[in-house]
């Protein structure tokens, strides 16, 4: 997990700078937003020329699953005050997955904090390294970095495409996005695809219960 987080952080740092963020903005994003998928989404909308509203909305929607994770781990950790706030900040795919995988309350707490703090330190260190490297590269297109962004999103969604329902929504998202890119402001096609998913989730018949989703970094 440590190696994966480090390399993922380097990719994010380099692509954020290519998208037009400064090195400082990239570092602050990893410190304060601290959710890989949402951070990639934000720079994706910025790179496409989207508005601040579209960038914040896309990033926030993609981070909504962290709220579900919080509801799962909060009763397991039973914290108060600043510790609860710190735990909330560290509530991401990895820390949740490790915490819910433990058998005893002590192991849950140890797993959550170890994974959360570990990923936080590595993610921020490697984001900075990637941002500095991206800053030094020059023309991003000559290095194929614009294509790397699409590949990064594909890698993030790949493990989530196993279910039939997810595949149908993925197909709808492709159609909606391609249809809207020529006519809607940048950033709007992505939000429209999310709206289609909300409708699909509301009307689709029930399926076997799933717990937390797969690792995203």
């Amino acid at each position: 997990m440590a190696v994966a987080t480090g390399l993922y952080g380097i990719s994010f740092g380099a692509l954020a700078v290519v998208a037009g963020l400064t090195v400082a903005q990239t570092a602050v994003l990893s410190l304060l937003l601290f959710t890989g998928g949402s951070q990639f989404a934000l720079i994706g909308v910025v790179a496409a020329g989207g508005s601040p509203v579209a960038a914040v909305a896309t990033s926030t929607l993609l981070g909504a699953r962290n709220m579900l994770y919080g509801a799962v781990v909060s009763p397991l950790l039973s914290l108060r005050g600043w510790r609860r706030a710190a735990a909330a900040h560290l509530t991401i795919d990895e820390s949740t997955a490790v915490a819910v995988g433990q058998r005893t309350p002590a192991a849950v707490r140890a797993g959550f904090w170890t994974a959360g703090v570990g990923v936080f330190v590595l993610w921020n260190a490697f984001t900075l390294a990637g941002a500095l490297a991206g800053d030094a590269l020059g023309d991003p297109r000559a290095w194929g970095l614009d294509a790397a962004a699409g590949a990064a999103f594909l890698a993030l969604v790949w493990p989530r495409l196993a279910e039939r329902r997810a595949q149908v929504v993925a197909g709808l998202a492709v159609v909606v996005t391609l249809a809207l890119v020529p006519v809607a402001p940048a950033g709007v096609p992505v939000l429209a695809a999310a709206a289609v998913a909300v409708v699909a989730g509301a009307v689709a018949p029930a399926a076997p219960r799933r717990t937390t989703s797969e690792d995203d970094r």
Partner: peptide, 26 residues
Amino acid sequence: QRTSTLVTVALLVSLVVVQTFADGAL
């Protein structure tokens, strides 16, 4: 839970499409 999973899929797939096929509004 289901809607959250599907929204995540739709957002990521849409971002793949934008990053791969969009050049401004083209």
